[in-house]
Amino acid sequence: MAFENPPRERIKELLAGAGNVAVVGLSDKPDRVSYMVAEAMQKKGYRIIPVNPTVSGSILGETCYASLSDIPEPVDIVNVFRRSEQVVPVAEEAVKIGAKVFWLQQGIFNEEAADIARTGGLEVIMDRCIKVEDSILLPGGK
């Protein structure tokens, strides 16, 4: 069966209920899309947790972790900025940490990763920009 994202009303519920959003592949460079999206989400009230093994220190004022497993608190949404062929291990780790949602950014699609995440109990959204969805579904903020 072909993958389908949840209905918009369900995506709205997921965003409204989210607190911690781990952003895998978040760049520390302000001109990168991952940075701009995460910064916008942070300004809307989401707690952004950067995940990037090549960055030590912090991004957007938050401690940056090398992997999802290193995050010492619960994660609601794992938002992924990685190439489609690199997301299977991220899905496995998202299941391992007990995240609620596995979200692949616009242009990122991987059926195997989606199956892993769904089998592990996560809701899956692929090929959608979290910032765009948030702006459309929660224009006044959370």
Rank of each mutant, 00 (worst) to 15 (best):
S67H: 10
V78S: 07
V78T: 07
T54I: 00
A38V: 05
V75H: 09
A94H: 08
V80D: 00
I71Y: 06
S69A: 15
G19Y: 11
I49C: 02
Y65M: 01
G61R: 09
R47Q: 08
T63S: 09
E92T: 14
I59A: 06
G25Y: 06
G45H: 05
K100A: 11
E112N: 12
V90L: 09
F81V: 12
A16S: 14
V23N: 03
V75K: 10
I71D: 01
P72V: 12
C64Q: 00
A99W: 04
A38W: 00
I48T: 02
T54R: 13
P74A: 10
I48P: 01
E111F: 12
L26E: 00
V78F: 09
L104A: 07
K29L: 12
Q42Y: 02
G25F: 10
V55N: 04
S69F: 11
V55F: 04
E112F: 13
A99Q: 04
E62Q: 14
N20H: 13
N52C: 05
P89F: 13
Y35Q: 00
V51G: 00
N52I: 05
K100R: 15
I71S: 03
Y35L: 06
A38F: 05
V75E: 03
Q106C: 04
Y46K: 12
L104Q: 07
A113H: 08
I49E: 00
R47T: 11
I108N: 00
Q106H: 12
Q106W: 10
A18Y: 06
Y35P: 02
M36I: 14
V21M: 13
V78D: 02
V101L: 05
I48S: 01
G19Q: 14
V90G: 06
E62V: 10
S69R: 15
E92W: 14
R82Q: 07
L26S: 04
V87R: 11
E85R: 15
V75S: 07
S27P: 08
E112M: 13
I77F: 06
E111H: 13
K100I: 10
K96L: 05
V21K: 09
I49L: 15
E62F: 06
Q105C: 05
R47L: 01
A66W: 07
V88W: 12
S58Y: 00
L68S: 05
Q106N: 10
A18H: 03
A66D: 12
R82S: 07
